[in-house]
């Protein structure tokens, strides 16, 4: 429960935030804190400085473009996404956010924090990968935007480097999406997840089977083809107390089919 000593800054502008982050290798952005504070409680990680992003209005809000593109500020909370009429342009977003943990966590946890943490048990990395989301990263040198394949690099590791911040996530238009997961009890810790999007070609992302979401494009939405596509990725998922590698590999196939089926229905 007891954190190591830490300095705390609450910048009022993005530039100020980037400056503090750049000045100190040990500084970390504090978004909703629903993962980071717990990591600090366990002293599994102890930043020197926390840079609280809650004062940065630039990082908040949801905008729906005329072409149906959604732009979500990195500091948008799950609850805001669930409640947002704009976000309903891509209904799966709110549906999956509503399955994250519980009300309290959804009230503080943010889409940017979820993505940047890239804990394999998080729902949003595979979902965002399946939806073809693009991630805008700001640094003192300017901005860059990367797709999911370049954003998620490892467990707790993304393309957001030292001195940088994820500012927004852009999701293209589309409606035919699906998501399926096996969790410990309802909405508990995730064992395996799968997200699918059928807008144009089929795009599938598997969660909890590797350090990053595993993205694949099955040749068809036929269940056998989907299963084969999952098998072809030669997954080597981790074994842990909740699932053996074999069980995860099997669930990946089952859930991939279910996510595709939901996408077909939607």
């Amino acid at each position: 429960m007891l954190l190591r000593e830490v300095a705390y800054a609450k910048p009022e502008s993005l530039a100020e935030a980037l400056e503090i982050l750049a000045a100190d290798d040990g500084a970390r952005a504090l978004a909703g804190g629903q993962t980071l504070i717990n990591v600090m409680k366990a002293r599994a990680g102890s930043p020197d400085t926390l840079v609280d992003l809650s004062g940065l209005d630039d990082l908040k809000g949801i905008e729906l473009g005329a072409d149906g593109t959604l732009e979500l500020g990195a500091m948008t909370t799950y609850s805001e996404i669930i409640a947002s009429s704009e976000a309903r342009a891509r209904p799966i977003l709110g549906e999956v956010c509503a399955q994250i943990a519980d009300v309290q966590v959804r009230n503080r946890g943010t889409i940017g924090g979820n993505a940047c943490t890239n804990d394999p048990t998080n729902h949003l990395p595979p979902l965002l990968a399946a939806l073809g989301a693009r991630f805008t990263i700001a640094g003192r040198g300017g901005e860059q935007t990367v797709p999911a394949e370049e954003f998620f690099l490892g467990v707790y590791l993304t393309a957001v480097g030292t001195g940088e911040l994820l500012t927004k996530i852009t999701i293209p238009a589309g409606r035919n999406d699906g998501f399926a997961a096996v969790t410990l009890g309802v909405d508990g810790t995730c064992v395996v997840s799968a997200a699918a999007s059928l807008n144009g070609s089929a795009r599938l992302a598997l969660g909890c089977v590797d350090a990053v979401p595993v993205v694949l494009s099955p040749s068809s939405t036929d269940p056998d083809a989907v299963r084969q596509a999952v098998r072809d990725t030669a997954l080597d998922p981790p074994s842990d107390v909740h699932a053996s590698s074999d069980y995860r590999r099997h669930l990946a196939e089952v859930l991939a089919v279910r996510a595709i089926e939901q996408a077909q229905r939607s």
Binding site: D102, L184, G185, V186, D187, G188, T189, D240, V241
Partner: peptide, 16 residues
């Protein structure tokens, strides 16, 4: 111990 907290030691919640 592989289940040292309520993440991995899942006790019933309301929805369960």
């Amino acid at each position: 111990l592989l289940t040292p907290n309520f993440y991995d030691y899942h006790v019933p919640h309301a929805l369960d």
